[in-house]
Amino acid sequence: MNDKQPAEQGDKPTATHSGEAPWTSGEIDRRVRRNRRLSDAEMRRLSDADMLREQILTLIEEHERKTVAARALAGDPNPTDADPLEYVQEIAEHYAQRDHRPTYLDQLADELTLDDVRTLRLAGEAAQAVTPRVIMRAAEGGKQPREIAAEIGLTESRVYGVLREERRKGHEAEQGATGDQQ
């Protein structure tokens, strides 16, 4: 990566934890936000590198807490700069890595409530229902099917199929509207 290109959060492994797949920046961020503290006994069992990592995470956590508190006191309506889809994106990212994270589903089951799962299921249904419209708008905006496929996580042939189907529906709707006026 050159100096002029910003790193995209969550797409590159940025740290490792002994015995696990590399952590992404999203995982590091989540660990910081969990206010996770190791006991003194746990800290003594860590290697020097792990100890340094834990100390860095603690410092980041403290800085973030102070910054959020200062912004909240100053009247900032969103002092954490929370992205409403951030947690859903983290779930998707981790699920995509499930072959390298065999305990992820158990961890997720411990974190989510029944209401959380219901909300995610409905959001998934909404995403599936809106996908053809998002694809059409992207194509109408000049994106090529290959680009759309790469960004949305579908095959190029599936994107072409969606475009054909949506154009057919649009053509049928126009024919119906024209027939109604005559």
Rank of each mutant, 00 (worst) to 15 (best):
D3W: 01
K4E: 12
P6Q: 05
A7P: 03
Q9S: 14
Q9A: 15
G10T: 05
P13N: 00
T14D: 11
S18F: 06
G19H: 03
E20M: 04
P22C: 03
T24W: 03
D29V: 05
A41T: 11
A41Q: 08
M43A: 08
A49D: 10
A49K: 10
H63I: 15
H63S: 13
R65C: 07
K66V: 12
K66S: 12
L73C: 10
N78E: 02
N78R: 02
A82Q: 08
P84L: 06
P84E: 09
Q89H: 13
Q89N: 15
E90F: 15
A92V: 11
E93M: 15
E93Q: 13
A96T: 10
A96V: 12
Q97S: 04
D99C: 03
H100P: 11
P102R: 02
P102Q: 02
Y104I: 06
L105G: 03
Q107K: 09
A109K: 06
L112S: 00
D115H: 12
D115A: 12
D115M: 07
L122A: 06
A123E: 13
A126D: 09
A126N: 14
V130F: 08
P132N: 02
A138S: 02
Q144H: 15
P145N: 02
P145A: 01
L154W: 03
V162A: 00
V162Q: 01
R168K: 10
K169T: 15
A177C: 07
D180R: 09
Q182S: 15
